[in-house]
Design a binder for these strands. Sequence first.
RNA 1: CGGGGUGUGGCGCAGUGGUAGCGCGCAUGGUUUGGGACCAUGAGGUCGGAGGUUCAAGUCCUCUCACCCCGACCA
Length: 572
Amino acid sequence: MRSSRLFGKTLRQVPSEAESISHQLLLRAGMIAQESAGIYAFLPLGRRVLRKIEDIVREEMDRAGGQEVLLPVLQSFELWLQSGRLTSFGKSLFTLVDRKEHKLALGPTHEEVISELVHRYVQSYRDLPLLLYQIQTKFRDEPRPRGGLLRVREFLMKDLYSFDIDEAGLDENYERMARAYENLYARLGLPVLMVEADSGAIGGKDSHEFMVVADTGDDKIIYCPDCGYSANAEKAQGFKKTVNSVSLLPLEEVATPEAQTIEEVASFLGVLPERTFKAVFYFADGEFVFAVIRGDMDVNETKLKNALRCEELRLATEEEVKKTGVVAGFASPVNVRGIKIVADDSIARGANFIAGANKRGYHLKNVNYPRDFQPDIVTDIALARSGDSCPRCDGKLLSTHGIEVGHIFKLGTLFSKKFGASFLDRDGASKPVVMGCYGIGVGRLMAAIVEHSHDGRGIIWPMSVTPYQVYLCPLYLDDPEVSSAAERLYLELQSAGIDVLFDDRDESPGIKFNDADLVGVPLRLTVSPRTLKNQTIEAKWRTEKKAQLLPVEGIAAEVRKLLDEREVSGRP
RNA sequence: CGGGGUGUGGCGCAGUGGUAGCGCGCAUGGUUUGGGACCAUGAGGUCGGAGGUUCAAGUCCUCUCACCCCGACCA
């Protein structure tokens, strides 16, 4: 490609709307252009990168045994009613109405469509296992698009769905996909952390996310440097020690005037916060919920939401709390009637805790579960934090941020049951197909690569996804020797099957070098009178300071060799 | 949805109620050229939109739209 003909321009100034580094660089390099909030056009350079990433994803899915399909973007509302996810997706679903007043959704994902499809074509255990995938544009009306390609409303995504006769088959495919994902990220030059994830409203057994560690990531990861335990903060567990494990003492009311917060109560009574109970009030799908947790911990709302199996969870307002008769600051799970109580299991790890007395100015001492109160649910609803002890070893947990570039789920029979996707086993018994789903955001991967691989001058593309392999950079084009050598070289490289971006513009060396660095092409070939008089061309890697001289004669073969070495080593 | 911010030429920005500007980019000509050159000339704007106040509105008022950031939210 000739730069003079290339659609899209590099920008010297950063467009003011761009905050994240990948957003800035992709805009400046002329890879993408914003059309609307969370909606982007891919310009020729960006399109090439996106296609290369897509091809790598496709290759790895094929290699893992996947078969590619293309599914409808326009999906009937009935499908969503049938799965019951109309409400859980809620406002994120883009909807429209056709001329017959029939409601349709722009597909945000394809579990419904694929389950319905498989229901029609899979009848026997002989048809399984089956791996189907598609790579196509999906739509989600995100509450807040952000960070350029990191969170958008219209995006290219790969989803693979696995169909098995039983859990064992699912487990096997799950492992297979996890390995395929690892290959794929390695080929993209991305170091990725596989972390335990919350499976959310979709339910299911296991779920893992693949994270690129980056400050700009909007997911928080909790991990243990000692044993390798890592999980999304929504899901992560911390070790809960047992406190004050002595024999149970009788309940006792004590006056605690003015002491309302955990800190105030604890210091007033001369104990550590871990000896107290903390009460937090929520509204879950319109129902008031009293959450109890030990005073040294905080409630993880994702876990609470899962425990309650609710769609919508929010903190209760002061008024709402008042209305229930609970006394904020002195609230207690003891002797509360008609209110749903959810307790973190930390309340059972220890004895003789301090809790409110449901009476202004008083607390209760020696509160014990289950002697003094009986919550509706007791489970883990605690937020794990950096500094907590690891649940698996003696290590201390740390936290970091990550960009989610892949998410895999064991769906089980959730969708197959709803869509009647069942098969007859060997014994002629009808069973629901066991499903898994495995997603990757292709556009987000592109942004993640840039977030991970860049420097002060611009993008540094890995060889595997670079829009062009070689940046052919002639200086002093008005010198006929240079222009003819450059033109000749351009043809030779192309004939050798090398992707070349030929900067045939009549620009100064500074501009050309800077553009080459900004666009991030791995290898730059500089043609100038200086080296040409010795029959040589200067070759410089994007990642290196120093250049090397290559003889003009047979240069295409030499460049081919250099590129192949890089590709194999996986270095940019 | 709550809080904050910004809308003026392709991009970045300035602009006291009184003739719409600067830098970059773009066009033409010339001199230049190893890390974003210089000179000259020139094109390009219904100041996000709609109302209103005023002799006069980019500037003041009301409404509205879009975009960005923080939070909520986010298989």
